[in-house]
Amino acid sequence: MSRAERLLALVQALRRRRRPVAGSELADELGVSLRTIYRDVQALIAQGAPIEGEAGIGYVLRPGFLLPPLMFTDDEIEALVLGARMAARRGDDRLATAADDALAKIAAVLPADLADRMEGDGLLVGFGRPERPDGVDLSALRAAIRNETKIAFAYVNERGEASRRVVWPIALAFFDRVRVLTAWCELRSDFRHFRTDRISEPTVLGQRYPRRRRALLKEWRELENIRLPGAGGAETACTPAETQPRRRAAG
């Protein structure tokens, strides 16, 4: 590993963590000596990286430090391409268009050799569409999640029972054959999972729900014993709609 690659790897290791990390842990992860970590941290600080901490205490990288796209590794480029292609296959039409646009932007700023590799990689995403069409505009659901606004809709559960719901949407899961909305349900005063193909007559109420989505999402993960792969990592959890269909399915 060259010095430039090592410095990049050190920045990435710091970016993955939200709390101070010991130099010894960084040394083990990068396969270098603790003295090398101390030198590299000082070199990054001299180049403008907002790293706080010191030897014996730990280091943390303040948010907002950006790396130019041309410093992506081959594996990182392939991860971005694969993720975008999965979004294009599994997401709604607007999400699919956004994924294609994102790939085009990435390709536009990459060195020619990496851009060529991105175009000719061997990563494929199989076809997969929901068994039944969604009863709600998924882009509107995603907007309600981002804006932390309540939505109302009619719902028919797996037993054929109909009800009206007002919910606080916090997450949307995309599976091969179904999409599932995770939300706090005012009717049940609890978290519930709603298949989007069973939703009808949706209305975005434009009213913010009283709690922050991040706090609700954390509470839901704890209740379902769901852990993320790492600090700042992508959400990969399976909702109970896939693993335990009856546990918090809407009822």
Score class of each variant (00 low, 15 high):
191 F>H: 05
69 P>T: 04
206 G>I: 13
239 T>M: 11
12 Q>H: 14
200 S>K: 05
57 I>S: 13
35 R>K: 14
98 A>N: 04
30 L>C: 09
170 I>L: 02
162 A>M: 11
49 A>T: 11
211 R>M: 01
119 E>V: 09
198 R>Q: 06
2 S>M: 07
121 D>V: 06
150 K>L: 15
220 W>V: 04
107 A>F: 08
25 E>P: 09
107 A>Q: 11
163 S>P: 00
200 S>V: 05
137 D>S: 07
195 R>M: 04
95 L>P: 02
98 A>T: 07
2 S>C: 12
244 Q>Y: 11
215 A>C: 08
27 A>P: 06
119 E>L: 10
55 A>T: 14
185 C>S: 02
135 G>E: 03
215 A>L: 10
197 D>G: 12
5 E>P: 05
36 T>I: 06
16 R>W: 01
87 A>K: 14
154 A>G: 12
148 E>C: 15
169 P>W: 00
89 R>T: 13
147 N>M: 15
143 A>G: 04
238 C>L: 15
46 A>T: 05
244 Q>N: 14
240 P>M: 12
111 P>N: 10
66 L>R: 15
53 G>Q: 03
101 D>R: 08
162 A>D: 12
34 L>N: 12
131 E>K: 12
168 W>K: 01
58 G>R: 01
141 L>E: 06
92 D>R: 07
126 G>W: 10
147 N>E: 15
236 T>I: 11
212 R>E: 05
236 T>K: 15
